[in-house]
């Protein structure tokens, strides 16, 4: 475990090497969140008493603040890491390391998430005095505990699923266009553009059982107190099962892909 944690630390240090980039990221990397909030204030006409699909204006703004923060734990980078490594052949050198590559990539991506999370939290703290009136404060021990469980599951399932997408590069060489298209679809399926409650009723019952809902939608709903404990436990088991399914799929596709790897570039 020590080597994975050191890899995490190294990746973290790496991302702090460029101070200017970090500062710029702090100020401009979060502008989309403010735009989204403004957008929902317009939709609700500034009316705090109004409710849309179970969401009040403050609930909706809180939903987006939380899902934006939690989306950092969606390890999309794992997929892009594999595609670039396969494409430029540098996967060859990491294959020679006596470690579990999937764990190493997981910790590297978590490190990137935390590096991205710090400026985001700083930004939220800076704007908090101005937006605190728009937010719903619904903190309970169970909610926080349940959210943390879903965040851990989200980081694992997103890492596994995005890695599997990244393995497409073994067959396609250039898979980034497909990856970006998938990113848009998955952002929708995880409730990043709009809460899943806005989809037709039948869709919601399917979407909430898919791994993507844990990447943003479910933890935000749990925080807002809009999901019963019984429902949370039922979904927890489903999402834990996804880890097993994705792990098996990950191993199978990885082995098949390696046989096709041509390790280009010298």
């Amino acid at each position: 475990m020590k080597k994975y944690l050191y890899g995490f630390q190294l990746f973290f240090l790496n991302s702090l090497q460029y101070r200017f980039n970090t500062v710029i990221n702090l100020f401009f990397g979060n502008m989309s969140l403010l735009v989204t909030m403004f957008f929902w204030v317009l939709i609700f006409n500034g009316d705090f008493g109004k409710s849309l699909n179970g969401f009040t204006l403050s609930g909706m703004i809180t939903y987006f603040v939380i899902s934006n923060i939690l989306s950092k734990f969606t390890l999309q980078g794992s997929g892009f890491y594999y595609t670039s490594m396969v494409k430029n052949g540098s996967l060859g050198s990491v294959l020679l390391k006596p470690y579990r590559l999937e764990w190493t990539v997981y910790f590297q991506q978590i490190s990137t998430s935390i590096t991205g999370l710090i400026p985001q939290l700083l930004f939220v703290l800076c704007v908090l005095p101005f937006i605190s009136g728009f937010l719903t404060w619904n903190v309970s021990v169970w909610n926080i505990l349940s959210m943390v469980m879903f965040i851990v599951i989200a980081s694992i399932t997103s890492h596994l699923l995005w890695s599997i997408f990244g393995f497409m590069a073994f067959w396609m060489e250039e898979a980034t266009a497909v990856m970006w298209s998938l990113a848009v679809l998955l952002n929708m399926a995880m409730g990043m553009y709009i809460p899943l409650d806005f989809f037709p009723k039948g869709w919601l019952s399917v979407l909430e059982k898919l791994p993507f809902s844990a990447w943003g939608y479910l933890p935000s709903k749990i925080y807002l107190g809009l999901l019963s404990v019984e429902k949370q436990l039922q979904l927890l088991w489903i999402h834990l099962s996804w880890i097993v399914i994705l792990l098996l799929l990950h191993r199978f596709i990885w082995k098949a892909g390696l046989k096709r790897f041509s390790s280009v570039g010298g």
């Binding site: 052949g89 540098s90 060859g92 050198s93 020679l96 390391k97 006596p98 570039g265 010298g266």
Partner: peptide, 11 residues
């Protein structure tokens, strides 16, 4: 893997 090493001049 602990017994081998690969030095690549171009990587």
């Amino acid at each position: 893997l602990k017994q081998i090493s690969f030095v690549m001049g171009n990587k």
